[in-house]
Nucleic acid binder design. Structure first.
Length: 771
DNA sequence: TAATCTCGCGCC
DNA sequence: AAAGGGCGCGAGATTA
């Protein structure tokens, strides 16, 4: 029996104790300490395990050598600790491992030691907590799914006063790292520079905590009846079989195309910025504004930057100080100069000695330096706003929260017809966005030609992924925007490619959320749309507006999309929006129609689909009574404030007349907040049911696809997921075989009552051409 | 200077 | 009186 405490494994006897502890334990919490957050490039400096609450082992494999200023490998009895660690870790296969963010520790361990522990992963505590408490330890002063934050949230339940303890430990650790010359900034947290005894305590405590959190939330999982949901149907299978492999595999980047695009787009940016500046500087008032602003920002002065710049521009022969490399401008130094107007100015500070053009030149030069050599900064909304509103007399469309006239895309758009500079600015802004968000990111952060996207399985309340892949620009058709914008917009997805000899099966669900919507609401009119293979938005428009003589049949001559595309597009704007709680006010804004007209649409829509209306009412009633809502596959969204508010005051808060009384009782701000919470909750409960179901459909299909690939012995995997799209990466020769079963599995893995799903596959060499 | 917040825009 | 959901990113403003 091992005593309850934490051990540091630096000798043979303790190592044997650790081995014994592993062998005796079934559930083991595991964690790594590393010198980097990059799982492919970093080093493991130690790992910790806990097989029992109160017990923790930390085995250091590398320690910071303060003299050498580097990490050196530890030894036990003359044996290197990396080899010993690998051997010890191999004992973990077949155990039930508990980790917190296993994708990190699991991939790190596999890369560094060649030990793949993921098959033995039993539970990830970050996901476990997310499953029963989807917002995590929100409001506990840090990351909602951070180990410490979670521990603090449940410290009473797990019998630890972790809050004070963790804070103390953090302080000691940080102090210690600093003393050893390490950095403790968030972006560069050099934990590996801490003293071994401190690091060890910290690491062992972490696995102990992980195990306690697992034990506690396992009970909650049972209470909430989510055991199968977590272990069998969704969370852990997705994590082990899809999420971690996706993060591990990454995506190949077309470096040649990237390189070429980088050069091209930089040239085009320069060209357009010049065009903007040229057009603007043709205007007298703008030129005057530049000078006036430059002088105001850098007024004439015989000291400081102005004087320095003056000497520079006029090549004044003065000595420079060694330290700052600046001209020495004290009196003694100045007196050595030959007589000149500038000398008089520098000594007296009286600007009358300087010719006006010299005075202005210096101010302008300094102003231009601030703006990277330009007369103004076209990336500065502030400067452009001043030019547009104050100089050119453009009328603002809107103002910021602080009341300043807003110079946003809408503004630019609205004046681009009359102002050529604005049109060029629009192009410039679009291109800059593409360059900074995608070109630079892929270029700077690819590793040997691969980019590793992240897929955070606990990133959303609905079970969707949080990922940096989700807003890759969708391909635009010619004519949708200026040709140059279309070009650069569309090149982004083409950066992401299949490897030599491999191919992508790119498969999107056809209107997945509307399908979920038709199924969940039980509305026959909605279900019929898909079963008849009609056009969704056309049908919605026809029923809502009671249109006659038009059809939602895609093949009919009077197909609405052909004869009245405007009406169909309007339906696009509200068909899901209204289901999620949108009202006439917001609809009138998005469609740019009167609120009365919008009101007719909202009423028409709800009347046209009576079961949808009923579903909205029933869902809201349920949340008011129970404080949570579940989706069709059992994932839960807690909305306790709705129940709380409803218990307290019923629906009075929704009635503005009743609100007046409530304001007297509770105060105005309080009532406003309560109103917002209540309203949000009542809308969330609608959206959640559909969005989370759609996520489950896609994720479960992904698991099924990876299993099928393994079963058939095909070297392939789901490589990426973007909400309702899966990208499967396989050897070229399997393209058609895989495409066939990918479609089948996406359409049939999760059956939605009353509708059949459609997911036609495309075969492509990159992430663009499948669309 | 770095961390954090807010805004506007991209995606579904 | 206030009036659709879920995200991530860059840039600028603000705070420590």
């Amino acid at each position: 029996m091992i005593e309850k405490k934490y051990y540091t494994v630096t000798d043979r006897a303790t190592l044997e104790l650790l081995v014994q502890h592993i062998k005796e334990s079934e559930y083991i919490a595991y964690d790594t300490e590393t010198n980097s957050l990059n799982v492919r490039k970093g080093k493991i400096i130690g790992f910790s395990v806990s097989g029992d609450e109160g017990i923790g082992f930390y085995m250091p494999t590398m320690v910071w050598d303060r003299n050498k200023e580097e990490l050196v490998e530890c030894e036990i009895d003359g044996h290197g600790c990396h080899a010993l660690a690998k051997k010890t870790l191999s004992l973990l296969h077949g155990k039930k491992l508990i980790m917190h963010n296993a994708s990190f520790d699991g991939r790190f361990t596999k890369n560094f030691y060649g030990e793949d522990l993921i098959p033995s992963l039993h539970a990830d505590t970050a996901l476990l907590v997310h499953t029963v408490k989807e917002e995590g330890a929100f409001g506990f002063g840090g990351k909602p799914f951070g180990l410490k934050e979670i521990a603090i949230m449940v410290q009473r339940e797990i019998g630890l006063d972790i809050e004070t303890k963790a804070n103390e430990e953090q302080l000691i650790l940080k102090e210690n790292i600093k003393r050893n010359g390490g950095s403790i900034t968030k972006t560069n947290y050099e934990i590996y520079k801490a003293d071994l005894n401190i690091l060890s305590e910290y690491a062992a405590a972490d696995t102990d905590l992980t195990l306690r959190i697992f034990n506690h939330f396992s009970k909650v999982l049972i209470e909430e009846n989510l055991v199968d949901f977590f272990y069998v149907d969704e969370v852990m299978p997705i994590y082990k079989e899809v999420t971690i492999p996706m993060e591990e595999f990454g995506v190949k980047v077309d470096l040649d195309l990237l390189q070429k695009t980088k050069i091209d787009i930089e040239a085009d940016l320069l060209k357009h910025s010049k065009l903007v500046a040229e057009e603007l500087l043709k205007i007298d008032d703008v030129r005057a504004w530049v000078i006036q602003t430059a002088v105001a920002s850098y007024p004439c002065n015989n000291k400081g930057t102005y004087a320095q710049k003056l000497c520079d521009l006029e090549s004044i022969d003065l000595p420079k100080s060694d330290k700052s490399n600046k001209y020495v401008l004290n009196k003694a130094s100045l007196l050595t100069l030959p007589e000149s107007a500038i000398k008089d100015f520098l000594i007296s500070g009286d600007e009358k000695f300087l010719p006006q053009n010299t005075r202005l030149k210096v101010s302008l030069e300094l102003w231009k330096e601030e703006n990277e050599g330009k007369f103004f900064n076209i990336q500065s909304k502030d400067q452009l706003g001043k030019i547009a509103f104050d100089v050119l007399g453009v009328t603002p469309l809107s103002s910021t929260t602080k009341g300043k006239a807003q110079f946003d895309d809408d503004m630019i758009e609205s004046i681009s017809k009359d102002h050529p500079w604005a049109e060029n600015l629009r192009v410039y802004n679009k291109l800059l966005k593409v360059k900074s968000t995608y070109v630079d990111r892929f270029f700077d952060r690819h590793e040997d030609g691969r980019y590793y996207f992240y897929f955070k399985q606990n990133g959303t309340v609905s079970g969707r992924y949080g990922s940096d892949m989700q807003q890759l620009p969708k391909p635009k058709e010619d004519g949708e925007a200026a040709p140059i914008i279309v070009h650069y917009n569309n090149v982004v997805r083409a950066f992401l490619i299949a490897e030599e000899g491999r191919i992508l099966i790119d498969c999107d669900y056809e209107s997945l959320e509307p399908h979920c919507f038709a199924s969940v609401t039980g509305d026959e009119n909605l279900r019929e749309i898909f079963n008849k293979n009609h056009d969704f938005y056309s049908t919605v428009a026809i029923r809502t507006e009671k249109l006659e003589g038009v059809s939602a049949d895609k093949k009919a001559d009077n197909f609405l999309k052909k004869v009245d595309p405007v009406r169909r597009n309007r339906a696009k704007a509200y068909s899901l929006g209204i289901a999620y709680g949108m009202e006439s006010f917001a609809l009138s804004k998005t469609l740019d129609i009167s609120q009365k007209e919008a009101d007719v649409l909202v009423k028409g829509y709800l009347d046209g689909f009576p079961d949808l209306k009923r579903w909205r009412e029933e869902s809201r009633k349920f949340v008011k009574e129970h404080g949570y809502i579940s989706n069709k596959v059992g994932r839960i969204r807690h909305l306790p404030s709705v129940k709380k508010i409803h218990d307290l005051m019923g629906d009075a808060i929704l009635d503005w007349r009743a609100r007046k009384d409530l304001e007297d009782q509770y105060g105005r701000e309080q009532v406003t907040n309560v109103y917002r919470d209540y309203r949000n909750g009542l809308n969330n409960c609608l959206n959640y049911q559909l969005q989370s179901l759609a996520a489950a459909v896609v994720n479960r299909a992904a698991v099924a696809i990876n299993r099928e690939l393994i079963k058939r012995g095909i070297d392939g995997r789901v490589q990426a997921q973007v909400h309702d799209q899966l990208v499967v990466n396989v050897p070229e020769e399997y393209a058609h075989e895989v495409a066939e079963f990918v479609q089948d599995l996406m359409e049939n893995t999760t059956k939605l009552e009353g509708v059949t799903l459609k997911a036609p596959p495309a075969i492509a060499k990159n992430f663009r051409d499948g669309h």
